[in-house]
Design a protein around this nucleic acid. Structure first.
Lengths: 230, 230
DNA sequence: CGAACAATTGATCCTCATCAAACCTTGTGG
DNA sequence: CCACAAGGTTTGATGAGGATCAATTGTTCG
């Protein structure tokens, strides 16, 4: 239908897929469009589908019993999500996926992915590679959270976001996130994020606006993220 | 040599391996014995080998530039470690592996594992399954660290350890860890761990000794770990 | 224009980290 | 076999870093 199967090659896990495989996958997929704030799936739901985001933006988050959230990952176009559950038969999603803008994604039955993997070694292998990057990133963030001060964690979060979804502008890199989002990504509160950004703005490192941060001096932010002193 | 290849089937990733595969692997492996406190590898080293712990106990940890450590995982017998690096060609170890007791491990060239995976789909698949559990656990611990208070994090750490390496005793589950170890596992300091354990001992939940904690009332610890109130 | 939502800022408080000192436990060597 | 050294543990005192609460000020959009 509207989607050319070959587009799927932009998904890192399908990089080595044959055209035929891509066609097969797209034939087994359904499109799901969702509005900002709505959910693709909730933590604990049975993981019947995995998704590929085609347009928009989403986030993966975990909620604790008291309702506090952490943001595990931000998903941009052509990224896969919900694949963890796809690997193990019985599984449920370990996180909740919420759209940050109106988004559409391709949903493919997890069973089908498992089926494919049995005869396509490249698939398991590439998916595994992707998972190693997730593990490494989570390990790093875990260490950060355990050992680094807030200011530095916020700096790191900004830099990660800049690398993944920053849009280059005249005189800076623009990021579209609320203070709350940033707080959930760096393990703090929106108040602290606000204070830190205000201070940085005074120093000319960033420019802060509503649902928007422009990194004016990336080097300066890197310095905060890396500096050896406490 | 001294090791019967079939022993390797205790390694979760080799569960579905044929006897021949196990023999091949063991032929490509060398044994490395290491004393308490010594290292199998350091974060940043080129990941030439992956390991299977045969005896003893080890821990995987990350260190930040200032030298503070976090404990990512405790490795007990027949667990694989250092496999993350094995997946991607060029890779370096993302963590440091240190022996907590005199230990011996089987070391297998990463190249060889990659080679095997090309023709053994079950291998990639099982390794991937294992990785999904790591991701899930790290995600959970990350959320805990971001949202829960110290006391609860320590309770969780104890319960995780009890499940993985606790030895059942008359009237409790024994764990052999220093306060420092527990602190690195729950993202706090040895002082806080000591205080919390002392308090729990007063309440009869645990019995604390030198490099030793006995969980006397597991249910009580679970209550602390789960209780909804802050 | 007004409602809804995001952000800022100040005041306050609480949890833990930090530092210091003393205490235990274990193993070792004289 | 005792004494001592080394390393693990406890406990108190102190303070800093952020969380929390409350009130106000933008900003956006229907």
């Amino acid at each position: 239908m509207s989607l050319d199967p070959k587009e799927l090659r932009q998904v890192s896990v399908f990089e080595h897929a044959t055209d035929d495989d891509l066609k097969l996958i797209s034939q087994h997929a359904i499109e799901r469009s969702i509005e900002e704030g709505e959910f693709f799936f909730f933590q604990g739901d049975p993981a019947e589908y995995f998704y590929v985001l085609i347009s928009g933006r989403a986030k993966l988050m975990q909620t604790n019993p008291a309702g506090q959230q952490v943001n595990l990952r931000t998903i941009s176009e052509w990224q896969m999500f919900g694949a963890l559950g796809a690997v193990r038969e019985d599984a449920t999603y370990p996180a909740t996926a919420q759209a940050m803008e109106n988004s559409t994604a391709l949903a493919v039955k997890s069973d089908y992915l498992r089926e494919l993997m049995k005869t396509r070694p490249y698939l398991s292998f590439d998916l595994m590679k992707l998972m190693t990057t997730y593990i490494q990133e989570m390990q790093e963030r875990y260490r950060e959270l355990a050992t680094e001060k807030v200011e530095r964690r916020i700096a790191r979060a900004l830099l990660r976001l800049a690398a993944q979804m920053g849009t280059r502008m005249d005189g800076g890199i623009e990021l579209a996130f609320t203070r709350q989002d940033l707080a959930e990504m760096s393990g703090t509160t929106l108040y602290t994020v606000s204070r830190v950004l205000s201070e940085w703005e005074r120093q000319g490192l960033v420019e802060a606006g509503r649902e928007r941060v422009v990194i004016r001096n990336p080097h300066g932010v890197v310095r905060i993220a890396e500096e050896l002193n406490s």
